[in-house]
C-alpha cells in the first residue's frame, strides 16, 4: 500500500482528500502545516505528498525546498493542491521540484488523473 502525506491547514480539505485517497488505496498521513509535514517525513518518507501552498508556520513552497534537501526527499511525488491558479505560481512550484499541480477546487477525478500521470496509480 502506498502512502500519501496530505498537507493542508484546513481540516475539511484534509478530510475530503483522505476520503478520496483511501478509495484509491493510499495510506493517508496528515499534517496541518509545512513544519509538521517535515517532521512526518523525517519519521517515514511517504510515496506521495498532496501539498497546499498557503499555510501558517511553513508554507508549501518552503516545505518543498526543505523536503528535497532531506535524505530520500527526492523520492516522493509531490502534487501541489492550491487555490493559487495562475501560470506564474505553477511555474514556481514546478521549478521548486513539484511533480504535478492541482488547482482547487478539486474532485476525485482530478486527483486520480494527476496521480496516475505521475505514476502513483
Amino acid at each position: 500500500m502506498k502512502s500519501c502525506l496530505v498537507v493542508d491547514d484546513s481540516r475539511v480539505i484534509r478530510m475530503v482528500a483522505r476520503k478520496i485517497l483511501e478509495e484509491l488505496e493510499f495510506e493517508v498521513i496528515e499534517a496541518e502545516d509545512g513544519q509538521v509535514a517535515i517532521d512526518r517525513c523525517n519519521q517515514v518518507m511517504p510515496d506521495a505528498v498532496l501539498l497546499d501552498w498557503h499555510m501558517p508556520v511553513m508554507d508549501g513552497i518552503e516545505f518543498l525546498y526543505a523536503l528535497r534537501q532531506l535524505p530520500g526527499g527526492d523520492k516522493p511525488q509531490v502534487v501541489f493542491c492550491t487555490t493559487k491558479n495562475d501560470l506564474s505560481h505553477i511555474q514556481e512550484a514546478i521549478s521548486a521540484g513539484a511533480n504535478e499541480y492541482i488547482m482547487k477546487p478539486f474532485d476525485s477525478e482530478i486527483i486520480q488523473s494527476k496521480f496516475s500521470q505521475v505514476g502513483l496509480i
Binding site: 491558479n85 501560470l87 505553477i90 511555474q91 514546478i94 504535478e100 499541480y101 492541482i102 488547482m103 478539486f106 477525478e109 482530478i110 488523473s113 494527476k114 500521470q117
Partner: peptide, 14 residues
Amino acid sequence: QFEVQRGLPIAMLM
C-alpha cells in the same frame, strides 16, 4: 480549469 485538469499533464498546460 476543470477541463484542463482532466488528463492534461501540468507540463503540457504550462
